[in-house]
Design a protein around this nucleic acid. Sequence first.
RNA 1: GGCGACGUAGCCAAGUGGCAAGGCAGGGGUCUGCAAAACCCUUAUUCGGCGGUUCGAAUCCGCCCGUCGCCUCCA
Length: 495
Amino acid sequence: MAELRLYNTLTRRVEPFVPRTPGRATMYTCGPTVYDYTHIGHLRPALVSDVLARWLRRLGYSVLYISNFTDIDDRIIERAQREGVGYRDVAERYIADYLENMRVLGIDQVDRYVRATDHIPQIIRMIEALVERGFAYPLDGDVYFDVTRDPDYGKLSGRSLDQMMAGARVKVDERKRNPMDFALWKAAKPGEPAWPSPWGPGRPGWHIECSAMTLEYLGSGLDIHAGGDDLIFPHHENEIAQSECFTGEAPFARYWLHNAMVQINEEKMSKSLGNIVALRDLVRRYPAPVLRMFILSTHYRKPLNYSEEALEEARRAWERLANAREAVAAALRAAPPAGGPQGAAGAPDGAAPQPAAQGAEELARAAEEARAAFAAAMNEDLNTPLALAALFDLARAANSALVAPGARGASPEALRAALAAFDELGGVLGLWTGATAAPARDGIADRLVEILVRLRSEARAARDWSLADRIRDDLASVGVVLEDLPQGTRWKWQA
RNA sequence: GGCGACGUAGCCAAGUGGCAAGGCAGGGGUCUGCAAAACCCUUAUUCGGCGGUUCGAAUCCGCCCGUCGCCUCCA
């Protein structure tokens, strides 16, 4: 199998993934600052990392994946003061919102979520060491990192200190040694949450918590550090500077992965622009796989424009895959035991050596080709749009086999191979989480639908088309879709 | 002003030197009581524009046009 290759922001190239320790992969993905509801922009890095972790695990890596919440920050404090509640209340509220959205979306690869405020001692120790070694300096209760002490400063974002100074558009704090020095520790103003420190009561600066937590759990030289590309500068640049100066080792992280922004009306979606689409609203309107499909339909390093039309298109595209998968599963359920043990759907190795029909061989081969194409796409910098194309090709092959003349297109063996490919490949992308095209197995609503479907079948048998159509239309109005097949009527809930 | 990314059919989107994947939408056909789903055929002589390199470029180089992002909190 071809090796995994990833685009590394640090080198600006796609390069082979060679982990620090063979067979093991460590990941850290920057999570949100929790001061407002999670929006679709936050979903992209979380989902890309989720799929990356799934793929690494499928490739056989032992993965340790950490993500974080920045739960102390100026905006959290502002919000808490505005609402008259504690900063912790604000953070907890939005952490809960984030986690609930991740749960619904099947984003479940993170081994451990960590919080800045749970690592204050580590952060303080790190700052102390940086001060002792002359990389940082206290100033009126703050502590700043001296960027001129890091000769490599700017290597991630590809800019030099000179350029930054020249292009600086911010009014500089005159007290700092250099305009680009950034805060490691911020002194508390009266009434603000604070932790005791050698420099007086205060709180961590924005970047230090990620360095402290990354080093705490994954150590220096971790494999993959990911996040949105708006974090390249200053957040990740500063993480690198403070971490490498602290440990004396480089690289702090071997591969830096950055996803492009989610846009809306060709403009970045962000809280400051006030154009966010909250996930909590979106997940009520679209099944998880559709939302995953929407994100994964564009390569992670290209901007993704959000629109209702794009979401509807993703819904239809996903339905095509789900329909094909369900058709294969249904055919397998209806298939004769075929000499294999118990021959039920999903029965392992029912390898009865029977001469496969021509079409069946084609389907089995299509399943193999889908696996190969999918793997090749994923290995080439997580090319999920191309990986999806492999699934669409499989869907066409499966559908064709199922309508082949004489029904000779699909042996149980071939069907099992196709279903396994659908499940495994689609599973890497999380396309079968939550809602499926298959009717649920229980629930009073389902049973009532089944009663109506049976009544309609009787009406059809009696050639009472007006009654049959009325039942179908009425069911459609409550979200039930009917399909009359030669074998009988199939129904499902509208995705 | 500095740094960077991108510009492929009606729309979305792969493809980074050898005759332009896939999806959605559209058109024609098959199947169906009708519909849905599905299948078959069809929809870019052309890849923002202009030059250049090459036997050959969407793919490499230069310039131009356009869009977006970062440089300040941001996934």
